[in-house]
Structures are given as C-alpha cells and as structure tokens.
C-alpha cells in the first residue's frame, strides 16, 4: 500500500500541522538516522521507507526482520528498546501478493522517538518471533496467531489466546472471514416464540 501512499492530506487547521510533533524523528526518509542505519547495515533486506503524517515506516524483508529489530534495539545511536505494539494487517483487498503485513511499533525510551517496521509475507510463511528480543511480544504474537493464523518462528508458546482452545472456525481478523462468523449462532427464539420462564400469574 506504500505505492499509493500520500505524504500528507489536506490540512484544515491553519498554522501548525498538529501531527508534526517530532515524535517520529526527521520527516524526510533520507535524513532519518534509523533509515540510514538500516539501509547501510542491511542493504539487501531494506525495501523502502515511507513517511505519512510524519510517521516513519521502514519496510523490510521478512527473513531479516528479527536481525533488523535487534539492530535497532541495540545500536547505541538508535536504542529502540521498547516494543509498543506488534500486530498484523491482512492486505487481501489492497494487493495480491504478499498477503499479510506484520507491523512492529518501536519506541525509544532514552531518545523519545517512535518507529514503525513492517514486513510483508504470504500465508503460511513463518515470521521471525520477537519474543527473544522483547518478552512483551509473547502475548502480542499469540494474539496475532489467534486472529490471523500467522505462525511465528521461535515463539515458545504459540496457542490460541482470545478465542476458545477448540475454536475451529478459522482466524477472524482475516479479510475473508465474515463479521458474524461462518456459522450463524443458533437462535432458537428467532422463528418460534422465544422460550421464556413464564409466570403463572399476571401482574395486577
């Protein structure tokens, strides 16, 4: 989706652009230290860097995701040591291939800057798990597995998280999954009058 991404929309409020808060570092990808460092260090795995509303997104190749995040975490000039969020997006309706994006939101507590790292992959591709780098990724990845069916390679405990253990109707946040599920829940009172506990007495 980065192909059609716009940099900035129509700003309605005159004066300052409120999203320009500087929390994401320089707005030009060429000036952003993380982008420069990743491009230098991982020239093969770096795809591109996109800026939207001053939010910097680095897109990388899936196999190198863990090395890149490790580099971003441990490099002394970057220090993205806090995993804000890890999730996935099903890009089924926006592009053909690859299907999913895994989105890693990083934050640097000492430098007070955010960064987003994305990697695209197809259904069934194993995604390197972040649990080895951040313990906090454990449940976030379990949730992504539960909701999207993404298999995280190296995750210690990949089980269903939110849905029942015996849930057999697939992964609900995929775009081809209907909102109400594949199977309507049995509603006995829908056609017949609903079974209620009747009182034998009417109120006066």
């Amino acid at each position: 989706m980065a192909e059609e991404q716009q940099t900035g929309g129509p700003a309605d409020s005159p004066g300052r652009r409120i999203w320009a808060t500087g929390h994401w570092g320089p707005t030009e990808p060429e000036e952003h230290p993380a982008v420069i460092a990743v491009r230098e260090r991982f020239p093969d795995s770096f795809v591109d860097a996109v800026n939207f509303r001053d939010e910097m997104t680095i897109r990388v190749d899936r196999p190198a995701l863990r090395e890149i995040v490790l580099f971003l975490r441990d490099e002394s000039s970057l220090r993205y040591n806090f995993l804000s969020d890890l999730t996935a997006v099903d890009m089924l309706r926006l592009r053909d291939n690859p299907r999913f994006d895994v989105v890693v939101q990083l934050y640097s507590i000492p430098r007070r800057q955010r960064l987003r790292v994305k990697a695209a992959f197809n259904d069934g591709d194993p995604v390197p798990s972040m649990t080895l780098l951040y313990e906090g990724a454990n449940w976030l990845e379990r949730e992504a597995y539960d909701m999207f069916g993404i298999v995280f390679e190296g995750h210690p405990d990949l089980r269903r998280m939110l849905l029942p253990d015996d849930w057999d109707e697939g992964h609900p946040l995929r775009k081809d999954y209907p909102l109400r599920g594949y199977r309507e829940y049995v509603q006995p009172g829908f056609e017949n009058p609903a079974p209620r506990v009747r009182s034998r007495f009417r109120r006066p």
Partner: peptide
C-alpha cells in the same frame, strides 16, 4: 474518506 495511510496514535 480520509487519505490513504496509516497512523499510530498513543
């Protein structure tokens, strides 16, 4: 319809 893009607001 907002413009195409993605934001993370904390």
């Amino acid at each position: 319809s907002p413009p195409k893009g993605e934001v993370y607001q904390a």
